[in-house]
Nucleic acid binder design. Structure first.
Lengths: 230, 230
DNA sequence: TCAAAAGTGTTTTATATACACCCATGT
DNA sequence: ACATGGGTGTATATAAAACACTTTTGA
């Protein structure tokens, strides 16, 4: 018998922390109501068991899709949680991922394992199953840290956005006030936003210009040592 | 039968990337020569299977100690690698950690699973077992990124060190030249180094002052929003 | 006395911050 | 006409970068 089988194996799961920004620029997290034991009928992060023939990222994407209908989003590994008593049934190690979605363009359709899925503002969360509060806290810290040094904030916005939307995003995530003129100067000086020569529509005031993030250009600059920073 | 048992489980291992700085300020990695299949007699990262009743970090520390004799070092989770064909025998997911040790003060004594352990300069590595080259590349990138924003570099030095040693450390890890006067100005202005009023000994030139890093003060400043940055 | 590294300030340049008003649009 | 957010420039302060010589010590 090969070495591999010498030890009993922990169960392995993935869990996803899905962030979205609502119309009022509130940072929200997607939770599902469990319809299986343990923690039945309690709120939890979407997730589930890793199958033997799928990669970790595939498992995270699959669970996300099955439980919430979400597809094609920014998804990045967060941390692996393996404390002994995370799960009352058994030893379960979970690889946590975090996802950023554009809440406006994303429809939720809970399925299979989840009886309901809903967005909760991170300032007003229900009690969570397992150690999911800890996973969520880790994800929030990561988002706050990373948004300043990598252009991941754009994942939370529609493809076309205004500078004010972008500024509010940073103000929300970083929980600070930013100066409008300085913010625009800085972000435009990076030369990573493409002016679409289009205007915002259906607003009850002067319409703002629309921009999109130039991902190709960013990749090239990054290779040459450029560092994005807000 | 509980839900937990519905799926066959991947095996779960931990692997450790141990960094050290030698006397010539070369960045080195500890590798072990495997004496078990697969990849018998090839070089690999120290690591092994996670037992059912130990946490991930405990497993990493245990393996490190068993295979290299290393104890009480800086150890932090790096990333979890779960591609399907990482291990030819079976589906194996590994939680990688990286460790920083003071090479001068650390003795290596390979044991049990490893038939030999040795330090290799990261610029001149042997072929590695499994996907360990990828894990190592990830660790190097993490070290380079993190050393600028967190005071982890001190973990690679003896408790008492000179400013020149510290500067060379940064030059090695970041692979750049730094200006001596500017470096000293910046690091001393943070007020996180304690002047020990002691001198370097046994050097064939003017002896330098010895300092130590004030960890307590750093923790306090960090809570108040201070950001370490080189 | 020589080699080798320690130690030390000032000037210039670049970046970050502070700050207030007019403009365009829809109601 | 008014309410709402869009859009713009300059002056000041702070931080980063460039730069070279003297000092100490052991061999």
């Amino acid at each position: 018998m090969p070495h591999t089988y010498e030890f009993p194996r922990p169960a392995l799961t993935v869990d996803c922390v899905v962030f979205g920004l609502d119309e009022q620029n509130l940072l929200k997290v997607m939770l599902i109501k469990r319809n299986l034991t343990p923690f039945r009928d309690e709120w939890a992060l979407p997730g589930g068991f890793v199958r033997i023939s799928e990669s970790l990222e595939s498992a995270a994407m699959r669970e996300l899709h099955e439980e919430t209908g979400i597809e094609k989003v920014f998804l990045e590994q967060l941390y692996t949680f393996g404390d002994l008593n995370r799960d009352p049934r058994d030893r379960v190690v979970t690889v946590a991922y975090y996802a950023l979605v554009n809440l406006a363009e994303q429809k939720i359709r809970p399925q299979t394992d989840a009886s309901a899925a809903a967005w909760f503002p991170i300032s007003d969360l229900p009690p969570l199953a397992f150690d999911h509060d800890r996973i969520l806290a880790t994800a929030i810290a990561r988002l706050k840290g990373k948004v300043r040094y990598e252009p991941i904030g754009f994942e939370l916005l529609p493809k076309k956005f205004t500078l004010s939307q972008l500024q509010k995003l940073y103000e929300t995530v970083l929980n600070t006030k930013l100066d409008k003129r300085n913010f625009r100067k800085k972000i435009l000086s990076m030369d990573l936003l493409i002016d679409l020569n289009e205007m915002q529509k259906d607003v009850a005031h002067r319409a703002a210009k629309l921009y999109r993030f130039d991902e190709q250009k960013y990749r090239k600059l990054k290779q040459r040592g450029f560092n994005f920073e807000i």
